[in-house]
Amino acid sequence: MNTLSEAILWLNDPLNWTNPGGLLERLSEHLQISFWAVLLGCVIGWPIGIWLGHRGRGGAAVITFSNLTLALPTLALLTILPLTPLGFGKPPVVVALGIFAIPPLLSNAYTGLRSIDPEIKDAAKGMGLSGGQMLRRVELPLAVPYLAAGLRTAAVQVVATTTLATFVNGGGLGEIISAGFGLGISVGGNQIVAGGIFVVLLALAVEGLLALLQRLVTPRPLRAAKRRRPTAAAPAG
Protein backbone atom coordinates (compact mmCIF):
# COMPACT_ATOMS: atom_id res chain seq x y z
CA MET A 1 0.00 0.00 0.00
CA ASN A 2 1.14 3.53 -0.65
CA THR A 3 1.38 6.19 2.04
CA LEU A 4 -1.99 7.76 1.16
CA SER A 5 -3.82 4.45 1.56
CA GLU A 6 -2.06 3.84 4.85
CA ALA A 7 -3.02 7.35 6.01
CA ILE A 8 -6.69 6.62 5.24
CA LEU A 9 -6.43 3.37 7.19
CA TRP A 10 -4.88 5.30 10.08
CA LEU A 11 -7.82 7.72 10.06
CA ASN A 12 -10.26 4.79 10.04
CA ASP A 13 -8.78 3.28 13.20
CA PRO A 14 -11.08 4.26 16.13
CA LEU A 15 -8.20 4.04 18.60
CA ASN A 16 -6.40 6.86 16.80
CA TRP A 17 -9.43 9.03 17.55
CA THR A 18 -10.23 8.06 21.13
CA ASN A 19 -6.83 7.33 22.71
CA PRO A 20 -5.27 10.03 24.93
CA GLY A 21 -3.64 12.52 22.59
CA GLY A 22 -5.74 11.18 19.72
CA LEU A 23 -7.57 13.07 17.02
CA LEU A 24 -10.60 14.00 19.12
CA GLU A 25 -8.49 15.50 21.90
CA ARG A 26 -6.21 17.33 19.48
CA LEU A 27 -9.17 18.55 17.44
CA SER A 28 -10.72 20.04 20.57
CA GLU A 29 -7.45 21.84 21.39
CA HIS A 30 -7.13 23.02 17.80
CA LEU A 31 -10.63 24.50 17.72
CA GLN A 32 -10.23 26.17 21.10
CA ILE A 33 -6.97 27.85 20.08
CA SER A 34 -8.45 28.94 16.76
CA PHE A 35 -11.60 30.32 18.40
CA TRP A 36 -9.74 32.45 20.94
CA ALA A 37 -7.26 33.68 18.33
CA VAL A 38 -10.01 34.77 15.93
CA LEU A 39 -11.94 36.34 18.80
CA LEU A 40 -8.83 38.31 19.79
CA GLY A 41 -8.43 39.45 16.20
CA CYS A 42 -12.09 40.54 16.07
CA VAL A 43 -11.81 42.48 19.34
CA ILE A 44 -8.85 44.44 17.94
CA GLY A 45 -9.44 44.55 14.18
CA TRP A 46 -13.17 45.23 13.90
CA PRO A 47 -13.46 48.28 16.19
CA ILE A 48 -10.45 49.99 14.59
CA GLY A 49 -11.61 49.22 11.05
CA ILE A 50 -15.18 50.32 11.78
CA TRP A 51 -14.06 53.54 13.47
CA LEU A 52 -11.67 54.49 10.66
CA GLY A 53 -14.22 53.54 7.99
CA HIS A 54 -16.91 55.60 9.69
CA ARG A 55 -14.63 58.64 9.88
CA GLY A 56 -13.46 58.15 6.32
CA ARG A 57 -9.81 58.47 7.27
CA GLY A 58 -6.82 56.26 7.78
CA GLY A 59 -7.04 54.17 4.60
CA ALA A 60 -3.29 54.36 4.03
CA ALA A 61 -2.65 53.45 7.67
CA VAL A 62 -4.95 50.42 7.39
CA ILE A 63 -3.14 49.17 4.28
CA THR A 64 0.29 49.77 5.81
CA PHE A 65 -0.61 48.07 9.08
CA SER A 66 -2.17 45.09 7.29
CA ASN A 67 0.87 44.65 5.06
CA LEU A 68 3.30 44.92 7.97
CA THR A 69 1.30 42.45 10.05
CA LEU A 70 1.08 39.96 7.19
CA ALA A 71 4.84 40.29 6.70
CA LEU A 72 5.48 39.06 10.25
CA PRO A 73 6.31 35.34 10.10
CA THR A 74 3.86 33.53 12.34
CA LEU A 75 6.46 30.91 13.20
CA ALA A 76 8.85 33.67 14.33
CA LEU A 77 6.15 35.10 16.61
CA LEU A 78 5.50 31.65 18.01
CA THR A 79 9.21 31.36 18.75
CA ILE A 80 9.59 34.81 20.33
CA LEU A 81 6.40 35.09 22.41
CA PRO A 82 7.16 32.07 24.66
CA LEU A 83 10.26 33.98 25.81
CA THR A 84 7.99 36.71 27.19
CA PRO A 85 5.94 36.43 30.42
CA LEU A 86 3.33 34.55 28.35
CA GLY A 87 5.56 31.47 28.56
CA PHE A 88 5.01 28.28 26.60
CA GLY A 89 1.67 26.65 25.90
CA LYS A 90 -1.55 28.07 24.51
CA PRO A 91 -1.37 31.82 25.48
CA PRO A 92 1.50 32.74 23.13
CA VAL A 93 -0.12 30.71 20.36
CA VAL A 94 -3.42 32.57 20.77
CA VAL A 95 -1.66 35.95 20.76
CA ALA A 96 0.47 35.12 17.70
CA LEU A 97 -2.48 33.78 15.73
CA GLY A 98 -4.65 36.69 16.90
CA ILE A 99 -2.11 39.10 15.39
CA PHE A 100 -2.18 36.99 12.22
CA ALA A 101 -6.00 37.27 12.11
CA ILE A 102 -6.15 41.08 12.41
CA PRO A 103 -5.31 42.17 8.79
CA PRO A 104 -8.31 40.61 6.99
CA LEU A 105 -10.69 41.63 9.80
CA LEU A 106 -9.39 45.20 9.88
CA SER A 107 -9.21 45.76 6.12
CA ASN A 108 -12.62 44.23 5.42
CA ALA A 109 -14.27 46.27 8.16
CA TYR A 110 -12.75 49.47 6.77
CA THR A 111 -13.63 48.56 3.17
CA GLY A 112 -17.19 47.64 4.14
CA LEU A 113 -17.94 51.04 5.62
CA ARG A 114 -16.12 52.98 2.90
CA SER A 115 -17.96 51.12 0.11
CA ILE A 116 -21.38 52.39 1.19
CA ASP A 117 -22.98 54.71 -1.38
CA PRO A 118 -22.51 58.36 -0.26
CA GLU A 119 -26.09 59.08 -1.36
CA ILE A 120 -27.34 56.66 1.30
CA LYS A 121 -25.36 58.53 3.94
CA ASP A 122 -26.67 61.86 2.68
CA ALA A 123 -30.23 60.57 2.88
CA ALA A 124 -29.62 59.37 6.45
CA LYS A 125 -28.23 62.78 7.41
CA GLY A 126 -31.25 64.43 5.79
CA MET A 127 -33.49 62.33 8.05
CA GLY A 128 -31.69 63.78 11.05
CA LEU A 129 -29.62 60.77 12.07
CA SER A 130 -26.60 61.53 14.20
CA GLY A 131 -23.19 60.02 13.51
CA GLY A 132 -23.73 57.22 16.02
CA GLN A 133 -27.24 56.48 14.74
CA MET A 134 -25.98 56.37 11.16
CA LEU A 135 -23.26 53.92 12.17
CA ARG A 136 -25.67 51.61 14.00
CA ARG A 137 -28.69 51.81 11.69
CA VAL A 138 -27.16 52.31 8.25
CA GLU A 139 -23.44 51.65 7.95
CA LEU A 140 -23.03 48.52 10.06
CA PRO A 141 -26.00 46.63 8.54
CA LEU A 142 -24.72 47.36 5.05
CA ALA A 143 -21.15 46.41 6.00
CA VAL A 144 -22.14 43.04 7.50
CA PRO A 145 -21.23 41.07 4.32
CA TYR A 146 -17.74 42.57 4.40
CA LEU A 147 -17.37 41.83 8.11
CA ALA A 148 -18.44 38.24 7.48
CA ALA A 149 -15.98 37.94 4.59
CA GLY A 150 -13.14 39.15 6.81
CA LEU A 151 -14.16 36.69 9.52
CA ARG A 152 -14.24 33.87 6.99
CA THR A 153 -10.75 34.67 5.68
CA ALA A 154 -9.26 35.11 9.14
CA ALA A 155 -10.82 31.92 10.51
CA VAL A 156 -9.59 29.72 7.66
CA GLN A 157 -6.08 31.18 7.89
CA VAL A 158 -5.95 30.68 11.64
CA VAL A 159 -7.33 27.13 11.53
CA ALA A 160 -4.67 26.17 8.99
CA THR A 161 -1.83 27.94 10.84
CA THR A 162 -2.73 26.64 14.30
CA THR A 163 -0.94 23.46 13.24
CA LEU A 164 2.31 25.30 14.07
CA ALA A 165 1.33 25.44 17.74
CA THR A 166 3.11 22.14 18.25
CA PHE A 167 6.48 23.94 18.03
CA VAL A 168 5.82 25.69 21.37
CA ASN A 169 3.97 22.87 23.11
CA GLY A 170 0.65 24.53 22.32
CA GLY A 171 -1.30 21.43 21.36
CA GLY A 172 -3.61 21.11 18.40
CA LEU A 173 -3.55 18.82 15.39
CA GLY A 174 0.07 19.67 14.72
CA GLU A 175 0.90 17.30 17.59
CA ILE A 176 -0.33 14.41 15.44
CA ILE A 177 2.02 15.38 12.62
CA SER A 178 4.90 16.06 15.00
CA ALA A 179 4.45 12.66 16.67
CA GLY A 180 4.57 11.04 13.24
CA PHE A 181 7.89 12.71 12.47
CA GLY A 182 9.13 11.51 15.86
CA LEU A 183 8.48 7.93 14.77
CA GLY A 184 10.39 8.44 11.54
CA ILE A 185 9.12 8.63 7.97
CA SER A 186 9.22 4.88 7.42
CA VAL A 187 7.07 4.16 10.49
CA GLY A 188 5.07 7.39 11.02
CA GLY A 189 4.64 8.49 7.42
CA ASN A 190 1.00 7.42 7.41
CA GLN A 191 0.35 9.42 10.59
CA ILE A 192 2.03 12.51 9.12
CA VAL A 193 -0.09 12.36 5.97
CA ALA A 194 -3.24 11.57 7.97
CA GLY A 195 -2.68 14.61 10.16
CA GLY A 196 -2.16 16.80 7.12
CA ILE A 197 -5.31 15.49 5.45
CA PHE A 198 -7.31 16.11 8.62
CA VAL A 199 -6.10 19.73 8.86
CA VAL A 200 -7.01 20.32 5.20
CA LEU A 201 -10.48 18.85 5.68
CA LEU A 202 -11.00 20.96 8.81
CA ALA A 203 -10.00 24.14 6.98
CA LEU A 204 -12.35 23.30 4.11
CA ALA A 205 -15.19 22.61 6.56
CA VAL A 206 -14.65 25.98 8.27
CA GLU A 207 -14.54 27.68 4.88
CA GLY A 208 -17.84 26.06 3.84
CA LEU A 209 -19.65 26.85 7.09
CA LEU A 210 -18.54 30.49 7.13
CA ALA A 211 -19.37 30.89 3.44
CA LEU A 212 -22.90 29.77 4.30
CA LEU A 213 -22.95 32.15 7.27
CA GLN A 214 -21.78 35.01 5.03
CA ARG A 215 -24.66 34.34 2.67
CA LEU A 216 -27.18 34.14 5.50
CA VAL A 217 -26.13 37.46 7.07
CA THR A 218 -26.08 39.29 3.74
CA PRO A 219 -29.35 41.25 3.49
CA ARG A 220 -31.63 39.87 0.79
CA PRO A 221 -31.70 43.14 -1.24
CA LEU A 222 -27.89 43.10 -1.42
CA ARG A 223 -27.93 39.48 -2.60
CA ALA A 224 -30.52 40.33 -5.25
CA ALA A 225 -28.52 43.37 -6.36
CA LYS A 226 -25.40 41.23 -6.70
CA ARG A 227 -27.26 38.71 -8.87
CA ARG A 228 -28.64 41.49 -11.08
CA ARG A 229 -25.24 43.17 -11.49
CA PRO A 230 -24.28 42.91 -15.19
CA THR A 231 -21.06 41.17 -16.15
CA ALA A 232 -18.43 43.50 -17.55
CA ALA A 233 -18.01 43.16 -21.28
CA ALA A 234 -14.68 42.00 -22.61
CA PRO A 235 -12.57 44.81 -24.14
CA ALA A 236 -12.77 45.09 -27.87
CA GLY A 237 -9.79 44.42 -30.10
Rank of each mutant, 00 (worst) to 15 (best):
L70R: 15
V62N: 05
G180I: 02
A225I: 03
V200W: 09
I192D: 02
F100K: 09
M134S: 13
I99R: 05
G58D: 02
G172V: 06
G112P: 01
A7P: 00
Q32E: 14
V38R: 01
A96P: 04
W36T: 07
G98D: 00
A205C: 08
H30L: 07
G41I: 07
I116D: 01
S107W: 11
P221E: 06
I102G: 05
L222A: 14
G131M: 02
E207R: 03
T166E: 14
V94C: 01
L97H: 07
N169I: 12
M127S: 05
W17I: 13
V217Y: 01
L135I: 15
G188L: 10
L40A: 06
I44F: 10
K125P: 06
G208K: 13
A76W: 12
T161K: 00
L75E: 02
E6N: 07
I176H: 00
A37D: 03
L183A: 13
N67I: 14
T231K: 10
T74P: 01
L216A: 15
L105V: 00
E207S: 07
S115E: 12
T218E: 04
L142W: 06
L212T: 11
A109N: 04
L209F: 09
F35R: 11
D122R: 11
V93T: 10
L202Q: 00
N16Y: 11
T231F: 04
N169Q: 15
Q32G: 13
A149R: 08
L183M: 15
L173G: 00
A143P: 09
V206P: 03
N19I: 13
P73V: 12
G184Y: 03
R55S: 14
N19D: 15
G131Y: 08
A60D: 14
W36L: 08
V38A: 01
V193R: 06
L216F: 14
G172C: 09
G182Y: 09
G49F: 13
L9Q: 14
N190I: 10
R26L: 13
P47G: 07
P47Q: 01
L173D: 02
T18C: 10
I116L: 07
R55V: 09
P230T: 09
S34K: 00
I102H: 06
S107P: 08
G174V: 09
L83S: 12
T84G: 01
S5G: 15
G128I: 15
E29Q: 13
S5C: 10
M127H: 00
P14T: 06
A194W: 10
P141I: 06
G98R: 01
V144S: 03
R26E: 11
A61S: 13
G22M: 13
E119S: 15
R137D: 15
M127T: 08
C42D: 01
T153F: 02
G58F: 03
V199A: 06
Y110W: 12
L129A: 05
